[in-house]
């Protein structure tokens, strides 16, 4: 068992907007749990406002948003802006799903920490989360 000083990584997994496909995020949530992380799942059809505020209240290390609806260029900039407005800019935002390569480049430029596309193996997802928290350092 863990000692008092090993904090599990906290991850919030969210589905935003009219996208009802949640099989993928549930599998991701389960993988992260099995890797020893605390995973907060918001459920379907959330708004950017709900997700950003919830992430700040939960003080997560990572906010993962899965999008399979094509709304990424609307949702991610809005979430990043809301996080900044709530003193939540040290929360790493990670995107998952299916999207064009040029969107991936643009989203990373805007401040999304990582985009994990649909063919990312579970272990690679776990490693990405650990790397992002390690790179951020203590807070």
């Amino acid at each position: 068992m863990e000692g008092p000083n090993t904090q599990p990584i906290r991850v919030m997994i969210a589905k935003v907007g009219l996208d009802g496909h949640d099989r993928g995020v549930k599998i991701v949530a389960r993988c992260l749990r099995d890797a020893g992380m605390d995973v907060i799942y918001t459920g379907l059809h959330r708004t950017p406002e709900e997700v950003a505020l919830a992430a700040v209240q939960e003080d997560v290390d990572i906010l993962g948003i899965s999008i399979l609806s094509g709304a990424q260029m609307t949702v991610f900039p809005r979430v990043l802006e809301l996080l900044r407005g709530q003193h939540g800019s040290d929360i790493a935002v990670v995107g998952g799903g299916v999207m064009p390569d040029e969107d991936v480049t643009e989203l990373k430029r805007l401040g999304v920490s990582e985009i994990l596309l649909q063919d990312t193996p579970p272990q690679a997802i776990v490693e990405s989360m650990r790397r992002l928290v390690q790179e951020r350092g203590p807070r």
């Binding site: 068992m1 749990r33 992380m37």
Partner: peptide, 24 residues
């Protein structure tokens, strides 16, 4: 694994944008 899935929030989403409610 020591990990967890914290799902109580799923039923509390409608409260989140009210500044008078804090959920952890």
């Amino acid at each position: 694994s020591g990990g967890s899935i914290l799902g109580d929030r799923i039923r509390m989403n409608e409260l989140v944008t009210d500044p008078g409610v804090f959920i952890r």
